[in-house]
Design a protein around this nucleic acid. Sequence first.
RNA 1: GGAGACGUGGCCGAGUGGUCGAAGGCACACCCCUGCUAAGGGUGCAGACCCGAAAGGGUCUCGAGGGUUCGAAUCCCUUCGUCUCCGCCA
Length: 430
Amino acid sequence: MHDIRAIRDNPEAFEQALNRRGLHGLTSQILSLDSDRRARISAAENAQAEQNKASKEVGAAKARGDEAEFERLRALVAQTKSDIATMQAEAADLDARLRDLLLGIPNLPLDRVPDGADEDDNVELRRWGNPRAFDFPPKEHFEIAGVRPGMDFETGAKLSGSRFVVLKGGIARIHRALAQFMIDLHIDKHGLEETWTPVLVLEDMMLGTGQLPKFGEDSYLTREGYWLIPTAEVTLTNTVHGDLVDHATLPRRMVAHSQCFRSEAGSAGRDTTGMLRQHQFEKVEMVSITDAESGLAEHDRMTRCAEAVLEALELPYRTIILCTGDMGAGARITHDLEVWLPGQDRYREISSVSYCGDYQARRMNARYRPEGGGKPEFVHTLNGSGLAVGRTLIAVLENGQQADGSVVLPQVLRPYLGGATRLSAEGVLS
RNA sequence: GGAGACGUGGCCGAGUGGUCGAAGGCACACCCCUGCUAAGGGUGCAGACCCGAAAGGGUCUCGAGGGUUCGAAUCCCUUCGUCUCCGCCA
């Protein structure tokens, strides 16, 4: 959510920044609502001040036993009461409308974010690793002989419908090993705090990180009113929801391995084969809560944390910076990591690392007191995948596949696989 | 699921119809004293919003929403959250 005062102080800059997001004319709408709102508030407050004054005099009159004056003032107060209620209602209505409008407006891109309409305008920052040269046509993950016994889409569909999968045997173990490896790397090498959170949350948390009010159809809502988190960003970030945290505890760097649930409304027909896009998947998520000064540096640090996972797994990738049109609503800048998938012969998103500034913090009302005292300031929040586990599984399988249908696995997974380094063409670890 | 209790400022915790935005403690900031792995004294210190160049003034907020009342942290209703006991259960 945006700071109305910042918009008032510099409407041109705000409008220009929104234009880069493809939004036009919102600023004048906001300002006009805001001035109406303030006029109403002033009127209501002045009326209230008068009533408060009269109320005090009522008490004084009563105390000195002046019944006539008491009755006169009482009647006066009663009379102005309904007027005040009307003015207050109007002010509250305008305030709510302004808030709703502001809640629906995306964050402002930083200057360094490239302008663009869609993913074609994203800018590559760097590449790591060389895609392997195959002496046979590489297959997609679900076509590889060694994978097929352990990746059961039929049973997944029977149990839960499309976009669900059942993993078995060696595949299930590799999947689990990947998640364990990632968490260990982040806590042992990167200094993040391992965190375990609920996957069902209250509605206010979804508002806090920005999934609501605009993107509710992307997530699942239970009968009891709980939302299933689409990412642990929701729970990790909202750990400071409503808090005034001690500055000395910043930055807070957390990592969680969680189930994620997405309805994938709007992506019907995309990535329908394989387990690239599922309704339920696992992700290792990183979240940092920082102060205003260190947010951007933290963004680079977090990007490095995610890149380190891919490098340890020997998976070629590229890091791109998303253009204004491709960036999520809450972000001021986003780095995507795209891993090389030889079966698809292209790079695919496997991590997204975003710096949100104080956008989420305003929604959550999460603040810290600056060092040496002073007014509380909003924290800055960052989130990034480190990494999407299912997609990492795909990348490991496709990049390690052999002509005979077996798969050579990354060395770093060995301790997590009972010493195994290969998945045979029959789907057995060895 | 049954019964009950609770929700106050950064934290703890008093306060049961007006003099309460709210005692006291802790934490924090500054000052004084003292002098060394401590302690003592003083002062300040909730947030949001509105008006104002500022000084300053005003409004609201004691989980949230509504009600009673001239007046609500305090009484009533609803709701969210938390806790305890019982039941069930991984």
